[in-house]
């Protein structure tokens, strides 16, 4: 009888431990981003920053001038250029991380090919009290543009930091052949 009680106690302890283990949230979830979500028509604001979408364009080719040199970037997919207005509330912060989640769920980071484009938000730093406008540029397959979400944070894979996401309206218009982004570096 004593042996049976011991075995039962061990089985019970194992069950309790298994239950504890299976219900413990993973560390990545506990220390993950603090998410705030909204729609394109809203200004989506977290405790530390806000994001408002002003315009979205798509094109086969983007053009701009970089330090006097004409740049013409083509793609087999489509360029998506998002005009946005950002504001920091508490502290100076760069916005190094902007990701476009496409219709398939795949994530597209800002294009490094277009890193020298004028007014790029990737090159700007937000200062509290000074709203900043600029553009995010993404290169992605055209079929991804039917359902997109823009996700913005201070850095990629934020931990216990704000992450703002905006559900974008589907792009109904066909991509422009060319989109002129203007001058940079002059």
């Amino acid at each position: 009888m004593r042996h049976v009680m011991r075995i039962l106690a061990i089985v019970f302890a194992a069950l309790v431990l298994a239950a504890l283990q299976s219900t413990t949230p993973p560390y990545a979830m506990l220390t993950g981003p603090i998410r705030t979500a909204g729609h394109q028509s809203d200004t989506v604001a977290s405790a530390t920053l806000s994001l408002a979408i002003e315009d979205i364009s798509n094109a086969r080719t983007i053009e701009y001038e970089h330090f006097g040199k004409a740049m013409k970037l083509e793609t087999s997919g489509v360029w998506v250029v998002i005009d946005a207005r950002l504001q920091a509330f508490r502290q100076t912060m760069p916005i190094r991380a902007a990701t476009l989640v496409g219709a398939s769920g795949r994530c597209y980071r800002q294009s490094e090919r277009a890193a020298g484009a004028p007014d790029s938000l990737a090159a700007k730093t937000l200062q509290p009290g000074l709203p900043t406008t600029g553009i995010f540029i993404f290169e992605l397959p055209e079929d991804e543009t039917t359902d997109m979400t823009l996700v913005v944070s201070e850095q990629y894979d934020p931990q216990l930091q704000d992450e703002v996401s905006v559900k974008l309206d589907p792009l109904v218009a066909a991509p422009q052949d060319q989109l002129d982004l203007g001058l940079n570096g002059d």
């Binding site: 509330f89 508490r90 502290q91 100076t92 200062q127 509290p128 009290g129």
Partner: peptide
């Protein structure tokens, strides 16, 4: 180093 205003906002 930073600048701080009366409401706690901080500029780097």
């Amino acid at each position: 180093v930073g600048l701080v205003d009366g409401t706690g906002r901080r500029w780097l």
